[in-house]
Design a protein around this nucleic acid. Structure first.
Lengths: 189, 189
DNA sequence: GTAGTTAGTGATTGAGTACTAACTTACTGT
DNA sequence: ACAGTAAGTTAGTACTCAATCACTAACTAC
């Protein structure tokens, strides 16, 4: 048994929760599964967080923060086409190394409707605010071009869906995605 | 009490299940909720379908079929830019009239990973096959242009996500989407 | 009208799950 | 050494939910 400070434990709970919620979504993930992954007893989670919802929320918010940081760091000091490529490359790395981050984001989006139905309007509010922050983060380096930004986000969502469906890398559905990353933003002739 | 043939009942179960699963996903939806919406007792669902999974699968497949038909009907006899606009218009109508169809599709994509973990590989196979059929359905009218097709699908997925998050129509995140629908495919300058 | 079939219900069960309460084990400062 | 505190566990509760079983009500063919 490895003892940790509560704050450190909370961190590893967030990581474990991200992986588990990414696969099963809010309802398809038991707190026991999270606890197992952390290597801690299930009831102890409720000492670290007030409830399951709070764990989901913490994981969701962390996820958005991470993605915002990924893009803002990638685009730092660049703009226009260069920024676009840098951010696209950064996202490609996330796809390969942390697909659970993409999946968790999708789960977060879909959890909004369910939360809304249960009377929780704050959750949707928080998710939309996070989206807007993400949007603005890519908007500026892309020269504040709404069309470019929207297309970039659209490709991101397409990638998320393809990853979710489990299309293996190299499958023909990815062709158009890579192609676009190569040609997009190039001066027309 | 209104009696129906088993086949008719199955149809209304699929419709009800689509609406319920769209909001809560597979795990977040109880068979009782579906039964209530149909107006039938919960155990009776298991006479019409072998289990909850079968209901989800039926709803998911219906959903994809409907979307494929939506696009193929919209693009019938058209090609290139005209087909693009016709399909975009058709999708706009779906957003307004049957948002649950979009949400159900997203839920289907995300259910793949969960099914995979439970050892069910056929589900993912079926979902990917459906996606490919949908892809091919829009690919041909768009002049078999991979880039155009990918962009079209990407915008579709972005729309699905924005709808899921509950961004109201008129919110600034939609600007870029509409703008693209107006200008995309137009000859430059 | 009655036998056979099809549509549908009520009661129940067994497994899983979020969360609580009471207790134990390890570290820290004095 | 030992008191206090922070980390963590075991046992248990109240509840939800998919699925089964035994039964009833309505339609149909003869």
């Amino acid at each position: 048994m490895v003892r940790m400070s509560a704050e450190e434990r909370r961190e590893s709970v967030i990581r474990a929760a991200t992986a588990e919620f990414a696969r099963g979504g809010y309802y398809g993930t038991s707190t026991e599964a999270i606890a197992k992954r952390v290597g801690v007893s299930q009831p102890y989670l409720f000492r670290l967080f007030p409830g399951k919802k709070a764990i989901f929320l913490a994981a969701a918010e962390r996820c958005i923060e991470d993605t915002i940081r990924t893009f803002s760091e990638a685009a730092e000091g660049l703009e226009g086409e260069e920024a676009l490529h840098a951010m696209a490359d950064a996202y490609t790395r996330v796809i390969a190394e942390q697909p659970e981050r993409l999946m968790m984001q999708m789960q977060t989006y879909l959890a909004v409707a369910a939360a809304e139905q249960e009377g929780d309007h704050e959750f949707g509010e928080a998710v939309r605010a996070g989206w807007m922050r993400l949007w603005d983060t890519v908007h500026l380096p892309l020269g504040a071009d709404i069309g470019e930004t929207t297309t970039f986000m659209a490709y991101g969502m397409l990638i998320n869906c393809l990853v979710a469906m489990g299309f293996p890398p190299g499958h023909r559905v990815w062709e158009g995605v890579y192609e676009s990353a190569r040609t997009k933003g190039r001066p027309e002739h």
